[in-house]
Amino acid sequence: MATRALLSVISASPRRIKIETSIFSSSSLSSSLQLQRYSRKAHRIARSFSSDTNPSVLQPPDVARLAETARISLTPAEIEECGTKLRQVTDWFGQLQQVDVNSVEPAIRAEMEGGNLREDAPETFENRESIRASIPSFDEAYLKVPKVLNKE
């Protein structure tokens, strides 16, 4: 697993370029030039970049660890399948590293008017029975779950 992961980092760049061509086979001369421009800039910028934005130090996904973080149990076959697909996709994400975003503000969503928050005050929801009916395991006033403390 570790060896394969290392290999995949080494091969990340050429593979990424291949994937770009297949996805953007629609690139005309002008947009290819655009991409070249981006990568020239990326080269220039990469030298001055901090390590966390340099694609060569981004580790490929460790599926088992990610699944644990996301609290999803996966079968060994799923780990294998997800791993292949995830590496493909994250390699493809890599092209974002080539964009010059120096001094560009991130946009967390579309432009919006502010001040639309309602008062932070409790309200009674009338249909409580229906909410209770959806709870898979319910005992009197409590949601029932298995013990929380680990054995260790």
Partner: peptide, 28 residues
């Protein structure tokens, strides 16, 4: 599952700037 894992990866410590923040900048 794939997309949740993909998102978990992109938001992982040390990767946030390279993926999520950068994508937000591209959105701009």
């Amino acid at each position: 599952k794939m997309r949740i894992l993909m998102g978990t990866y992109a938001l992982s410590a040390g990767y946030y700037d390279a993926y999520y923040k950068r994508a937000q900048q591209v959105r701009t």
